[in-house]
Design a protein around this nucleic acid. Structure first.
Length: 620
DNA sequence: ACGGATTAAACC
DNA sequence: TGGTTTAAT
């Protein structure tokens, strides 16, 4: 249930674009001989022919459905071509499809704000482009309208009115004329996608995300559907409640069962107050709105995913029953995650901040079997070995809780690791990069991040770090013994002693930030007491700090992370004994800085001259 | 305890 | 916060 936003004042043109049976198309592009044949993509095929995750339209004619097994599909469609998802480290590897999805996104992002909604779906806000077209070259002025545009489906056309007539109506209201422009633009975009990638897609064009999403699913494959405002009541009036996004689950079935609401239109019979009384303030308002086709959700300008994750299930007999085996799989998952994080860093200059693991398990508990396994998270450090180490600690901690003092039989039925809280790498005025650029190197002043990660930059490559696999598993303690090893610290983040932060290419003086710190860890070592020995507040991390203000008392900041992690040094006061305890690369930078500064009278008050903290996250 | 692997976001 | 739950594909 998204926040129930009021409808925006100005009319918008929103499109939802959905790739048709995407994985199948990707495979058919790789293997053209499969084109036109009934095809499905399966992952794993040892057990009953594997599970179908995408079904081509030729195969759908035979009644092949997603969630069938390969064997079942063969039964109803003996000639079906079953293509297997690539496997890496014993698990399905979806990178092929992720990359193909990115190709499409970069094409679709050309005409307006674009939001990657999933691996094969995007939302577009085409308002500006449509307004502009309406001013410059509205459809009725065009010599000939794109064939693809003419094939649009327009909901609620009047008796025998052709699509072309609708598109070119000069007496239509502003809203409809905008949608017509949207249809032209989307047809162009779809043609572009087809030309550049060979993928077909379906699309919906409407005044908001909800309606656009709904529309894109009405005519498939390779078609587009326009939803004029006037058609909304009929559309929603006949739409089964569970077909509406967000109502396909419990909320939808509750509406159906408890209120007898069969279609979205049926919601019109309830007042907003009643819906709020039943489902809460926000959800109630949201329901009242969608019944009327009102939806204010904005198209977020975001082309990249907000998190990365990978996981695997171990059903039935395959359940993992020993620490060494869990460690093996966890290492594999971490390896994949690490590769993807590194690729994101290289390609998109983004750093993830949080590592999360989740597992499902079962254990004997009396007669029954329990299955809640706690999720755990910690600050994320880059490097395959580090991620593996941290994930393992998280798992141990989760398992301890899971077993709850009782040592008994246990089995893990699913494992996953993910990385979230991803921010762009800093480009700000106070970044390490800028610091080196200005004070030390012949680096150009406007040194940008892309320069930083140039080819000569030292960076941790996945091949450099060997993951520990089963060989190391023999060191492991028995399950019921590992209660003591962590010294009461629950989070791996609190226990790491190595404080590496970045790797430095000394030749160029370039820093690539491959790891990050967690504030709490360091606040312990370096209480954030600031300038002149005034009482240090432990709440330093919440103190807002303006970079430009630093001018009065000469201090230097190193901003490690995007507007978040900051090391601050007082010019007169840096204590060399403390400097020695800093992470090596920071240490080097501080010393370089000290030399280049005109410090006259260094003080020696341990802890008083350096603060390290996270700046508050700035909301835009 | 076979609808798997991912993503996102609300909720507490 | 971190951790859990819901939902979608």
């Amino acid at each position: 249930m998204p926040i129930a936003r009021p409808a925006p004042q100005a009319p918008r043109v929103i499109a939802h674009v959905d790739l048709d049976c995407f994985y199948v198309q990707v495979e058919q592009r790789r293997r053209p001989e499969l084109r036109g044949l009934p095809t499905a993509v399966v992952q794993y095929n040892a057990w009953k022919g594997g599970g179908l995750i995408a079904v081509g339209y030729e195969a759908r004619k035979f009644g092949v459905k997603r969630s069938m097994r390969g064997d079942e599909a063969k039964m109803v469609c003996p000639d079906i071509q079953l293509v297997q998802v690539p496997v890496a480290r014993g698990k399905a590897d979806l990178n092929l499809y992720r990359d193909a999805g990115s190709e499409v996104v970069s094409i679709l992002a050309a005409k307006g704000r674009c939001e990657r909604a999933s691996i094969d779906e995007v939302y577009l806000d085409l308002t500006a482009a449509a307004e502009q077209m309406l001013t410059a070259t509205p459809p009725d002025t065009l010599q000939e309208i794109d064939e693809e545009t003419l094939k649009s489906h327009v909901l609620g056309l009047q008796n025998g009115e052709s699509v072309k007539q609708w598109l070119c109506r000069t007496d239509a209201d502003h809203l409809d004329r905008l949608l017509a422009c949207g249809a032209v633009i989307v047809a162009e975009l779809r043609a572009e996608v087809l030309k550049k990638t060979s993928f077909t897609c379906s699309a919906g064009i409407a005044h908001n995300k909800m309606l656009a999403k709904l529309a894109s699913g009405i005519h498939k494959p390779a078609q587009q559907t326009v939803v004029p405002s006037s058609s909304v009541p009929d559309l929603l009036g006949s739409l089964p409640i569970n077909k509406m996004k967000q109502l396909g689950g419990k909320l939808g079935s509750s509406l159906q069962k408890e209120l007898g609401v069969a279609t979205v239109g049926d919601l019109l019979h309830f007042t907003e107050e009643k819906l709020q009384e039943l489902y809460g303030w926000n959800t109630g308002a949201w329901l009242w709105n969608i019944a009327r086709g009102i939806n204010g959700d904005e198209v977020e300008g975001r082309l990249l995913p907000k998190s990365h994750g990978c996981g695997k299930t171990f059903p039935g007999q395959q359940a993992l029953k020993s620490l060494s085996v869990v460690k093996h799989w966890l290492n594999g998952l971490c390896e994949e995650l690490s590769e993807r994080l590194q690729a994101d860093l290289d390609k998109n200059k983004r750093l993830a901040h949080t590592l999360i693991i989740h597992a499902d398990g079962s254990k004997a508990q009396g007669a029954l079997t329990k299955r809640k396994f706690p999720s755990k998270s910690c600050p994320l450090r880059y490097g395959t070995a580090k991620i593996q180490e941290d994930a393992w600690k998280l798992f141990e901690s989760g398992l301890r809780e899971f077993l709850d003092l009782q040592s008994s039989e246990w089995a893990v039925t699913s494992l996953s690791v993910s990385a979230s809280k991803i921010f762009p790498v800093p480009t700000g005025t106070n970044s390490i990069v800028k610091y080196f650029g200005e004070k030390q190197q012949s680096y150009s002043q406007t040194s940008e991040v892309c320069d930083v990660y140039g080819e000569d930059t030292t960076s941790i490559s996945s091949s450099e770090i060997s993951g520990d696999h089963l060989s190391e598993a023999s060191d492991l303690q028995p399950v019921n013994h590992f209660g003591e090893e962590n010294n009461g610290c629950h989070s791996p983040g609190m226990t790491h002693q190595t404080n590496k932060c970045s790797t430095v290419n000394r030749e160029k003086g370039v820093c690539s930030i491959l790891e990050h710190f967690h504030p709490i860890r360091f606040l312990k070592h370096f209480p954030p007491t600031v300038d002149g020995g005034t009482s240090g507040s432990k709440d330093e991390e919440t103190e807002s700090f303006k970079n430009e203000d630093a001018g009065t008392s000469p201090s230097h900041e190193i901003q490690v992370d995007q507007q978040r992690e900051i090391w601050r040094f007082n010019v007169e006061d840096v204590d060399l004994s403390i400097v020695k305890e800093l992470p090596p690369e920071i240490q080097q930078e501080v010393q370089t800085w000290i030399k280049s500064s005109k410090r006259t009278n260094p003080a020696k008050r341990p802890g008083s001259s350096i603060s390290h903290y996270f700046a508050p996250v700035k909301k835009s």
